[in-house]
Amino acid sequence: MTFEQLLFYSFAAVLIAAAIGVITSRNPVHSVLFLVLAFFNSAVLWMLLEAEFLAIVLVLVYVGAVMVLFLFVVMMLDINVARAREGFTRYAPLGALVTIVVAVEIAYVARARQLGVQFFGPPERRSVEYSNTEEIGKVLYTEHVYAFEIAAVILLVAIVAAISLTMRKRPNLKVQDIGKQVATRRGDRVRIVKMKSESPD
């Protein structure tokens, strides 16, 4: 076994263990942390495939931003694990069915003639100068530029929709208008009164 295979198997083992941890741990916060660990290990596996751009972006986007928000939300929620696990036996057959379907699909894709693992073969080794990031950039902004821009527009629409759904004006809410605060002059707040000094009696 080469050093690289050793790395692959150890990271893959941790990945699978973390994935199992996600669905078995009792505490939702621990589940989220296991998911973070799983993301990290899959990033390392991509790194072994010399896909360093994807690996780093996975860590940057999912671990660095999405999972932080996940953790944020999960910590604030008061999840009753016992309630959530109610009806386990009732849904178990359906779950088993879905599991079997997914497993069969994965097996089919991995074994099929056109898409199978052996059809692609191992990726060729690149020299040290080869820049994965640059290659992805070249393809993404030339050949696939329409798909890329459509995806960007869809995301923009999603942002606008999410904001417009949650933005509402509540009455009686005290909101500061910072522009107004900055534009305030002394004359708006203070009235200077000139008067003659008076004798004490």
């Binding site: 942390l33 973070v36 360093e52 751009f53 780093i56 972006v57 860590v59 940057l60 671990v63 660095g64 931003a65 932080v68 953790l71 944020f72 910590m75 820049s131 994965n132 990031t133």
Partner: peptide, 21 residues
């Protein structure tokens, strides 16, 4: 490394986990 800037950005975004945890 080639993607040094991305690497730095990815790592600095991890520091928040220590604080949250």
């Amino acid at each position: 490394v080639d993607a040094g800037l991305l690497y730095v950005l990815a790592l600095t975004s991890l520091g928040v986990y220590g604080v949250i945890l």
